[in-house]
Write a protein that binds this DNA or RNA. Sequence first.
DNA 1: GTGATACTGGACGCAGCCGTCCAGTAATTT
DNA 2: AAATTACTGGACGGCTGCGTCCAGTATCAC
Lengths: 219, 219
Amino acid sequence: MSAAAEGVASGRGPGRPRDMAKRCAILLAARRLFIQQGMAAVTMEAVAAAAGVSKMTLYSRFRDKEALFEAVVVFTSEAMIAEMSRTQAEGGTLAESLAALGRAFLALTCSPDMIGAERGLMMALHDNPALAERFYAAGPARTEGSVAAVLRQAAARGEIQVDDPLEAAGDLLALWQGGMCKRLSLGLQAPLSAEQIEQRSRAKTEMFLRAFAPSKAEA
Amino acid sequence: MSAAAEGVASGRGPGRPRDMAKRCAILLAARRLFIQQGMAAVTMEAVAAAAGVSKMTLYSRFRDKEALFEAVVVFTSEAMIAEMSRTQAEGGTLAESLAALGRAFLALTCSPDMIGAERGLMMALHDNPALAERFYAAGPARTEGSVAAVLRQAAARGEIQVDDPLEAAGDLLALWQGGMCKRLSLGLQAPLSAEQIEQRSRAKTEMFLRAFAPSKAEA
DNA sequence: GTGATACTGGACGCAGCCGTCCAGTAATTT
DNA sequence: AAATTACTGGACGGCTGCGTCCAGTATCAC
């Protein structure tokens, strides 16, 4: 389970080289299937077929189903990190930069891919703390850190009044998400559109700032 | 799947009557196993053994695994409803009654039982909207309604300033829970103790009330 | 008592799926 | 060219788990 998850390196040598496009195809297909049906319900045959690959190719790259699953999680985590790294809180109003972070966070956590991943991965990740940590760190934890940094600076400038920036960041993330986390996972709510994300991010950020406004004046 | 989920009625007639204690034992054992290992991983043999019951007894009461699962969900939903119904927002400060609701909500959603249920049930409930709705309605939706009612009254008395009580209730629930929902499901955080619940409920309610305070004065 | 039903414990058929093996073909190095 | 490795497609063993059946025993109504 904690092994390298990848087959023999084959870095350089004679013989036909590995088709790296196939690796990507496998991971994408596996993720899609894991998301749709859950890890237990997906057969290796189905993954191979969906990826347009022979079953032996699958097993030559990934020791078994669990190794494939682990690779999917790592793959997805890296994609999340890359996505969140693109979004930096650039200059602008405090509300503006926070709303930008919120937009990115919502777009990430509300995408069908991610809610499916979370739903499907939760049970499987539960007894694999290291992997779970990695997955979580790539998403919410990263956003929380960025938000906390912005809040800390704003507090230093006196724009807001906050004792514990990290906890306040948690509050803001919670407001952004609201109850959607649950409802999306249960399939009781459709994913948000871009405009809905935009509006929600803005509205909840506003509400958050009302709670942490400096004690003397109000908007 | 959508059938009665229960075996023949046997309401009254000759012959040995059903041992109703066994039904409860089955449901409890099944829930515990579903929570621990997820629906797919639990075998019917294991449920029968854990409940101290023959496999035939299992199948005589529940058509198949899915029917058993459905019964577990309904059973748990009813327990949640009963639990939340015990908690009414009795008189007291606005902050007090809200915090009381928060305490009940957190105690419910943070109990190992419930986080396990949510984790385990999410995937299984995803393609069973009616059942998912029922489960969700028994928990968060119920609390949200109660909170909204309290907020509406408080708004009418001018204690707070809120346009949409239901949405504000959603905000408050989100604050209470914070990021715990995710971290608990992933096993990255231990369930809260009673004192932690008490303190969190109080703190987050305070923060919420700051955001919705009437525009003229502050605490 | 008789008859009817619930429950047990083990055994079974059946299906699905994991992981492996093999012979043949494709791509690339030396 | 030869050698070496990647990939295919199908076939196979083995295991696990679902759902069923049966003979025997326990518990009820009449």
